[in-house]
């Protein structure tokens, strides 16, 4: 009898285990405050808290993984993970290969940052992260583009004089400028590009996309999302 009970319990447990859907989220882990690897070695930042909340509301069991920015879309397509949550702007070009949920961060202005306020960005190389809307913008506007695999390196290029300016999300640059003791400063006016930040899913995963969309809608409706944005981006962060 005891044995029977044990087996039943085990079966019930394994059935429960199998029915809970595990969704793997992937992020870059190098784009604070959107996403970062914290000092404990875990994924942290705005998107960590946001992603966990979305999973809770959509009743999904989520695990986090990190992937290089450069290969983040191909690895989604080959099924290594199910959702990209990596500060990825929704663009028409990306929509051709993957699908996006609705945006969970409004279209943000991108900005130029140089060593001095009168730096002439048009004159010299402008650094940007590879395969980003910013890199595309720099290339289209005829400036000399210097691409780097990680966001940190794009800023380091300005610090060591390799590039005259860096062009990136102003939300990413703001803390760096504020804490640089005057070594970095915003140059010129911000430029609005991109269609907001969304979660990337495979085009065949419409069901998952629907669940995530519903969760984001509810987070926008009850103001949770705005509170999170305020917490990570400060008063300058754009709200819904």
């Amino acid at each position: 009898m005891k044995k029977l009970l044990l087996i039943t319990t085990l079966l019930a447990a394994s059935a429960g285990f199998a029915s809970a859907e595990v969704v793997r989220l992937a992020t870059e882990g190098a784009y604070p405050p959107f996403n970062l690897i914290n000092d404990k070695g875990e994924v942290g930042g705005f998107e960590r808290e946001f992603g966990d909340e979305v999973c809770k509301r959509a009743a999904l069991e989520c695990t986090w993984s990190t992937n290089e920015w450069d290969s983040i879309i191909p690895n989604l397509q080959s099924g290594n993970y199910d959702v990209i949550v990596a500060g990825m702007s929704i663009t028409d070009e990306r929509k051709k290969v993957i699908d996006f949920t609705q945006d969970y961060y409004p279209p943000t202005p991108s900005a130029f940052v140089g060593a001095t306020a009168d730096a002439d960005c048009k004159s010299g190389p402008v650094s940007a992260q590879v395969s980003t809307i910013q890199a595309a913008h720099v290339a289209e506007s005829g400036m000399t583009l210097l691409e780097f695999p990680t966001p940190d390196e794009t800023v380091a290029a300005v610090r060591n004089g390799e590039a005259v300016c860096v062009f990136a999300d102003s939300d990413y640059l703001r803390p760096l400028v504020n804490e640089s003791n005057g070594a970095l400063t915003f140059v010129g006016e911000p430029v609005s590009i991109g269609g907001g930040v969304g979660m990337g899913v495979r085009q065949s995963d419409q069901e998952l996309k629907g669940k995530l969309d519903a969760a984001i809608t509810s987070m926008k409706a009850d103001g949770t999302l705005n509170t999170m944005i305020e917490k990570y981006f400060g008063p300058e962060g754009l709200k819904y």
Binding site: D39, A156, L176
Partner: peptide, 24 residues
């Protein structure tokens, strides 16, 4: 690193990069 195994070069780059107050 290309195989997403985090090796010493990955960590050196990640740990060495500028850390704002978003990090501990």
């Amino acid at each position: 690193f290309l195989l997403s195994v985090k090796d010493i070069v990955y960590y050196a780059r990640e740990l060495g990069g500028t850390k704002t107050s978003a990090y501990a």
